[in-house]
Simulated assay, not measured.
Amino acid sequence: MRLLEVSGVSVTFDGFRAIDNLSLAVEDRGLRAVIGPNGAGKTTFMDIVTGKTRPDEGRVVWGEENANLLKLRESRIAQAGIGRKFQRPTVFEDQTVRENLAMSLKAPRGPFAVLFARRAEEGRIRGIADEVGLAGQLSRRSGELSHGQKQWLEIGMLLAQDPRLLLVDEPAAGMTPAEREHTTDLLRRLARDRAVVVVEHDMDFVRRLDCRVTVLHEGSVLAEGSLDFVTSNPDVIDVYLGR
């Protein structure tokens, strides 16, 4: 089932066409990598989906009810189930891992939910910490974590919001080989239950993800398919890989 559909979207900044009639669809679960040269429109694509940028034309449709994301504010889009992780981790460094995750949890609803919130919250926090590989770091101040651990914490903070779609920007940047391997396993595991879209420049990391790849160029889709398929495309070699 299609979870997100971007159709005929274009946007221009000061005469520069950053997105040009872009159309692509994301299924309700699974892993997708988006690659392309600088200026291809990768960041603008994420900005449009999350409501940060409004396109000049086109449609962005979300979920089973075909909700028009272009009519929603950024906060409402996040509440609808779209989480975005930027390249540089943004965690509260003076707070512990537990406190970061607790602040990110969805607020309980109803009197009975509030009554039992603390016990459920602690269980949820421990479950998320275990899922991202920080089960032994809950009491540690977040500023003391390694770069990779901060990345995992931010992913955990997004998971606390129960997103249906995760947009992840260059997760492998600055990581050690061991952290990159852990991140690969984490993203592939998360994609079993939700959609995960990874924007990445590191082709070795993309190959480890072993997923469908979309190549953007000049704001539109240049090629799509397996990594081997797109990297054998002469146009992709010319505009991206050959540089």
Score class of each variant (00 low, 15 high):
residue 1 M to H: 11
residue 4 L to Q: 04
residue 10 S to N: 10
residue 18 A to M: 04
residue 20 D to R: 15
residue 21 N to P: 09
residue 28 D to Q: 09
residue 33 A to Q: 04
residue 33 A to C: 14
residue 41 G to E: 00
residue 46 M to Q: 10
residue 53 T to P: 01
residue 54 R to E: 04
residue 59 R to A: 04
residue 61 V to I: 08
residue 62 W to T: 12
residue 63 G to C: 10
residue 67 A to R: 09
residue 68 N to D: 15
residue 75 S to L: 12
residue 78 A to C: 09
residue 80 A to P: 11
residue 80 A to W: 01
residue 82 I to H: 02
residue 87 Q to D: 04
residue 88 R to C: 01
residue 88 R to K: 15
residue 95 Q to N: 09
residue 100 N to L: 05
residue 101 L to R: 09
residue 101 L to S: 03
residue 109 R to H: 12
residue 125 I to K: 05
residue 127 G to M: 12
residue 127 G to V: 07
residue 131 E to C: 14
residue 134 L to D: 08
residue 137 Q to Y: 15
residue 142 S to Q: 13
residue 146 S to I: 04
residue 154 E to V: 05
residue 162 D to E: 15
residue 164 R to L: 05
residue 165 L to M: 13
residue 177 P to F: 09
residue 178 A to R: 14
residue 180 R to Y: 11
residue 181 E to H: 13
residue 188 R to T: 07
residue 191 A to N: 11
residue 192 R to P: 08
residue 193 D to M: 05
residue 198 V to E: 05
residue 202 D to I: 01
residue 206 V to R: 07
residue 207 R to K: 15
residue 217 H to V: 06
residue 222 L to D: 04
residue 223 A to H: 00
residue 227 L to A: 11
residue 234 P to R: 09
residue 236 V to N: 01
residue 236 V to Y: 10
residue 237 I to C: 08
residue 241 L to E: 07
